[in-house]
Simulated assay, not measured.
Amino acid sequence: MSRFDENKFRAVTWVQRHIANPLTRRLPFQTVLETTGRKSGLPRRTPVGGRRIGREFWLVSEYGEKSQYVRNIQADPRVRVRIMGKWHTGTAHLVPEDDARARLKSLPRLNSAAVRAVGTNLLTVRVDLTD
């Protein structure tokens, strides 16, 4: 990662962690991914943009394996996703072979534009929903 990308990563993640995420995860219509903290074991809720397609939920991580929720998935792939106010359990899978830029074209426009604008290492994530 270049120095510019590293600085952008730090700035964007600070804003997300301290301002955007605490506000948006409380919105009832916001999609939220809940992982288990790999160190704490506590639930960690992250607002995400993605789309349910059948029994799968697809999203793209803007920072790939540097994203905390991706690192949590690597430690424990059992997750919950709040879609339209309803919680669903599932198992998350990292899909590095997927074309993340092409995937963004099938996901909600506003979030996809933001991910393209700030992302430096895009990674597709698929959640197989069990309920």
Rank of each mutant, 00 (worst) to 15 (best):
L27G: 09
V12D: 01
L27K: 11
N111R: 07
R17L: 08
A113N: 14
S67Q: 05
R10D: 07
A92Y: 05
A117Q: 10
T31I: 11
I19V: 15
R55I: 02
G119A: 05
R45E: 14
I73G: 05
G41L: 06
S61V: 02
L107I: 10
E65C: 04
S40R: 03
K66F: 05
T124E: 09
G37F: 04
L42I: 00
V32P: 04
L123N: 04
M1R: 11
I73L: 04
N111E: 12
G50W: 03
T35H: 03
V48A: 00
R55F: 03
A75M: 03
V48K: 00
K105C: 12
P96T: 08
L123S: 08
V81E: 09
K105M: 13
I19E: 00
S106D: 15
P22F: 03
R71N: 01
Y69G: 00
S106L: 13
T46Y: 09
G64I: 05
E6V: 08
G49N: 02
V95Y: 02
R78V: 11
S106A: 15
V125W: 00
R109H: 13
V70L: 06
E56M: 02
T91D: 09
E97D: 15
S61E: 03
P108Y: 10
V32S: 03
G50Y: 04
R10N: 11
P77I: 04
V70S: 06
A92G: 08
M1Y: 11
Q74I: 12
P96A: 09
A20Y: 12
V115F: 08
L110Y: 14
T13W: 01
G49D: 02
W14Q: 09
Y63H: 06
E56L: 01
V125M: 08
D128W: 00
V60M: 03
L107Y: 10
V125H: 07
L110D: 12
D5I: 00
V95S: 08
I19K: 00
A20T: 12
G41W: 05
L23I: 15
V12E: 02
R126K: 15
L27P: 06
T31K: 11
S106N: 12
H88T: 10
R51Y: 03
V79R: 11
E6Y: 10
L110R: 15
I53E: 14
Q30D: 03
T31Q: 13
V118Y: 03
Y63V: 01
V81R: 08
P28L: 06
T130P: 08
E34M: 12
V127T: 04
R52M: 14
A114G: 13
V15T: 11
R10A: 10
E56N: 08
R103Y: 02
R55T: 13
V48S: 01
E34H: 01
T35Y: 07
D131W: 03
A117V: 07
V32L: 07
Q68P: 00
V15K: 02
F57Y: 15
H18M: 11
K66S: 11
L104T: 07
V70D: 04
W58C: 01
E97L: 07
